[in-house]
Amino acid sequence: MVDLAFGPEPGKRPAASDPHLAYLAMVRQKRMYSALMLVLLAFLLATGFHLAEGRNAGGFLNGLPNLGAFPSEVLSEAWTERANLPGLAIEHLPSLIETINIAAVSTLMGGLCAAFLALLSTRGLAPFPRLTPVARRTMDGMRALPDVVIALVLIYVLGGGPIPAVIAISIHTSGALGKLFSEAAENADLKPVEGLTSTGATWGQRIWLGIIPQVAPNWASYLLMRFEINVRASAILGFVGQGGIGADLKVAMQWGTGKYDQVVAIFIILFLTIVIIDRTSDWLRTRLTKGAQHG
């Protein structure tokens, strides 16, 4: 790691006549720059918040005391109705499963698409080297599109249901995973590929037997990480668009008082699911990457 506060710039050497003074001057200069950057950042943050507060419906200081009001209102109602919570949680399980299914299917499909795009855009592996920039720009574009937007447009065309959400998250996943996949593939050892080429293997065989076994642990770990993100994304998609636990949450929130026990039940199962998935995937990922290190 580079030390930002000390250490000469590459190519620039302190004056040899008095190294002590030259060093102190350099440190002073670097510190001044860092201090200036900090002041600038503080200034930007302050003006930015001022501006954003001006555009907000409620001010920061007015809202601060209310921060606890909504959660406590929700929680107190849920507490008086706490006997309902387990029943409500079970009632919302099917939509939770739908949300998880949307995330899983789109991770799988996006992952498949990402693998192809990654192989097309990796130097040394691409079957058509001239097309690598095209594949890369495609991935950039797919990554840049927010999934909610694609989903909303698709709902207009395809009608409701989980399919628009699956397509939307898949598109974003392909772009995001494609980049990570191709970075992993770039670091793969090309010797097995050369060996396979010498035996007359086709492109598919070279990739399947030479590259996939090398990158599989990394790719699987990225897939798991993406799945975590996609579960959250599909919950948000449900809230903005349609389908799954997000839609249930929106209905319950819009109803307001009287359905807060439902809101809490949904929060609880969503929170638990996210924590469980995070933990499992964390554990699996360390196993995958550690296993790869041992060979």
């Binding site: 907000n56 419906a57 909504f70």
Partner: peptide, 12 residues
């Protein structure tokens, strides 16, 4: 959702 209730809609 929690923050919108407290601070109202807007960029902040």
């Amino acid at each position: 959702l929690i923050l919108v209730r407290a601070f109202g809609p807007g960029p902040m």
